[in-house]
């Protein structure tokens, strides 16, 4: 197990930023574990969602932001629903994921690659279609063969959509402006 020196690892600015950006009073978490009990992604987490909450309370920035759990969270909000202290736990997880990404803690690159491949499809076509996202994702991650077992069944049922040019152009501009701004603000694009 790794050792943490609380007096040195504690980062008060991290606590403040997490609370401000998520709009949640994380200090009220009393570690009941309800969030973890209902979490459908718990089995792939390295730190359970209640542990993440505790980590934020203690200001353990490095421990929290490097957790793969932030990337595997399904945003299903079961934790939020079940929290007796009305903390929007799912919202905190999302805020932490944004912070992790901005600061370069990409501990589950395949998740980020998948999302970016999806956004590339949207940027290029204005709409998305599974086949396009999948192809881009495979290229990014070189995980050739991902889900190929589904291809015959899927192709039988699918066709490519017609997408009006205005949709394509406008979404492309939105995503480009976003990328530019993120770069200017020193965040990961």
């Amino acid at each position: 197990m790794n050792e943490i020196h609380l007096n040195r690892a504690r980062d008060p600015a991290f606590i403040k930023e997490t609370e401000e950006r998520s709009g949640q009073d994380i200090g009220t978490c009393y570690q009941c574990g309800n969030c973890t009990a209902g979490c459908p992604a718990a089995f792939v987490y390295d730190r359970q969602v209640n542990q993440i909450m505790r980590g934020v309370q203690l200001g353990l920035k490095d421990q929290v932001l490097s957790s793969v759990s932030l990337w595997y969270c399904l945003s299903c909000s079961m934790c939020t629903l079940r929290c007796p202290n009305n903390i929007d736990v799912a919202g905190v997880m999302e805020t932490l994921r944004h912070m992790a990404r901005e600061q370069g803690y990409i501990t589950a690159p395949k998740m980020e690659k998948f999302w970016m491949s999806f956004l590339d499809t949207v940027r290029a076509f204005g709409r998305t279609y599974e086949v396009g996202t999948m192809a881009l994702y495979m290229m990014r991650s070189l995980r050739l063969g991902t889900d190929l077992d589904l291809a015959p069944a899927a192709l039988k049922l699918r066709k490519l959509p017609f997408i009006p040019h205005a949709a394509t152009a406008a979404t492309g501009r939105i995503i480009e402006r976003y990328m530019k701004r993120a770069e200017k603000e020193g965040k990961r694009k």
């Binding site: 945003s75 999302e94 999806f118 956004l119 204005g126 998305t128 949709a167």
Partner: peptide, 15 residues
């Protein structure tokens, strides 16, 4: 001319 809402990936990256 509706376009994609961004689905999960957009909010996972930035709201």
């Amino acid at each position: 001319t509706w376009s994609c809402c961004g689905s999960t990936p957009a909010h996972a990256v930035d709201e």
